[in-house]
């Protein structure tokens, strides 16, 4: 099982590095976003290998799904005049597709090594939340306040033009 862990670690690391380099050198923004999303999913696999299953789930939800959707929406809303366009061909999407299929196939193998999977999940969520709310409550509350302030700021920035027009009328 240690050999399997080592093999999976090196494959996930290779996926991270290749997708990072692909994101760095490719000109098309959409393909860069797809490769970045692939890296985020590979990092969640690394979290599983390190025994942080709760954080791996958070990584998948927040970074792999949430931020990817935000990035794609921002590209859609800001990329109307892009002359390069979306390069949907096999050459540019082959690496992300293969990496994505591999990640979805190996995640069950990673989880399979934990025979007491239910116990581990209950530990990871219960003790983690105890430590979060008991010893780090202030930083957690501060993060919540920061979320609130950022939301107000974003709404204000995006609707400032409309507010100015209404006031001028």
């Amino acid at each position: 099982m240690d050999t399997l862990n080592a093999v999976i670690f090196y494959i996930l690391s290779a996926i991270c590095l290749i997708s990072g380099l692909f994101c760095l050198f490719h000109k098309c923004t959409f393909n860069a976003v797809i490769s970045a999303s692939l890296l985020l999913w590979a990092v969640s696999g690394l979290y599983f290998l390190l025994g942080a299953s709760f954080l791996a789930g958070i990584q998948m939800l927040l970074w792999g799904v949430g931020i990817t959707i935000i990035m794609m929406f921002s590209i859609i809303m800001t990329n109307k005049d892009d002359k390069d366009g979306f390069l949907f061909n096999l050459k540019t999407l082959s690496v992300p597709l293969i990496g994505g299929i591999f990640i979805f196939l190996i995640l069950p193998f990673i989880l399979y090594q934990f025979s007491g999977l239910v116990n581990l999940q209950s530990y990871s969520a219960g003790d983690f939340s105890t430590l979060l709310y008991k010893n780090n409550a202030f930083s957690f509350e501060l993060a919540g306040v920061l979320v609130f302030c950022v939301l107000i700021g974003i709404i204000t920035i995006l609707t400032a033009k409309r507010i100015m027009k209404c006031r001028m009328k």
């Binding site: 942080a52 709760f54 930083s139 957690f140 993060a143 979320v147």
Partner: peptide, 17 residues
């Protein structure tokens, strides 16, 4: 993991902004 969780949350907020 708690530190990574806080970094993740603040990072997501930052990137959304």
């Amino acid at each position: 993991q708690v530190a990574a969780f806080i970094v993740t949350v603040i990072g997501v907020i930052n990137i959304a902004a």
